[in-house]
Simulated assay, not measured.
Amino acid sequence: MAFARIGDQLLHYRLDGPAEARVLVFANSLGTDLRIWDAVAAGLDGRYRLLTYDKRGHGLSGAPPGPYPLDAHTGDLIGLLDQLGIERFGLVGISVGGMIAQALAARAPERVEALVLADTAARIGTPEMWNARIAAVEAGGLGAIADAVMQRWFSPSFIAERPVELDGWRNLLLRTPVEGYAGTCAAIRDADLSAAVATIARRTLVVAGADDQSTPPALVAATAALLPDGAFVTIPGAGHLPPIEQPAAFTHLLQRYFAEVGFA
């Protein structure tokens, strides 16, 4: 395990792969940690130097009192990259990790050599929805919403056919600190990246699970349409977290896109 202190924020991260390879950075979703990328990392077969990390309030990273602005999440990642001496990189973000990726690519476009946005959008949900979610977890913990979240995270086939894995990922959600979950809900609630996304000139792959109930494909496609050069694709048989449900299909899309843009 590796840790870094970025200002007052403790971040847990993992950096694996050949030292001379191009760096590929992954940003995870609300209520998860860096382990959601394990199967994708295995499928990339040592071709990249992979940086995964637990954003603030998640996993083994610190969970300061919220709310968190999205800029704090973005600044954490930029600070981690700077501390590790990583100047240029490919960036893959999912859900709120995709919002972090959008914000970083708009803030520092010269550093991002390839960009993948998965199951995310420039604006997600309504303030009323996020306020209700925050109130629920503050009153009853993550258990108050866990079953509903599983319905949004995963496709009906995953829920029906892979109950043991479902229970494991539910445990991951339940172990997220309430402060971190609620603080990050506030970051999503308050973020509108529509104007920022329109400035991202780099060709971007935008991916949605066909059965995603958190960021439905139409919402993800609308964000792809804001990009000057966005390519939108869906993954059948996947909900909000294709790296868990369909890692081979997700990895194939990454490799095809990286070859297209010369990030190989």
Rank of each mutant, 00 (worst) to 15 (best):
A108T: 14
L172F: 02
E128Q: 15
Y53R: 04
V220L: 01
R170T: 13
D33A: 03
P127A: 11
R47S: 13
D167R: 09
A224D: 02
L172C: 05
P69K: 10
G59W: 07
R49H: 10
R133N: 03
W37E: 03
L226D: 05
I200D: 06
A187S: 11
D82I: 04
A148C: 05
A201R: 15
A41F: 00
A122I: 05
A186Y: 05
P18H: 07
A198E: 05
L11E: 04
R14I: 03
L142Y: 08
R5D: 03
V23G: 09
I244A: 03
T215P: 03
T176W: 00
A114F: 03
F89V: 02
G93A: 00
H58Y: 03
T52G: 06
I86F: 12
N28R: 02
I6E: 02
L226C: 04
E161S: 14
L173E: 12
I159L: 15
R47M: 07
W130D: 06
Q102C: 09
E161L: 13
P109N: 12
V233F: 07
R56Y: 00
Q246L: 01
T223P: 00
Q102W: 09
I235A: 04
V96M: 15
R123T: 14
L44T: 10
P156F: 13
M129P: 00
L253M: 11
D192L: 06
G46Y: 08
G43Q: 13
R133V: 03
T176A: 03
A108H: 14
P242T: 11
M129R: 15
L44G: 12
A248E: 15
P243S: 13
A136T: 14
T204N: 02
L50F: 08
R203Q: 14
G183L: 06
R162F: 13
V220Y: 01
P109V: 11
P216R: 15
S157E: 15
L30W: 05
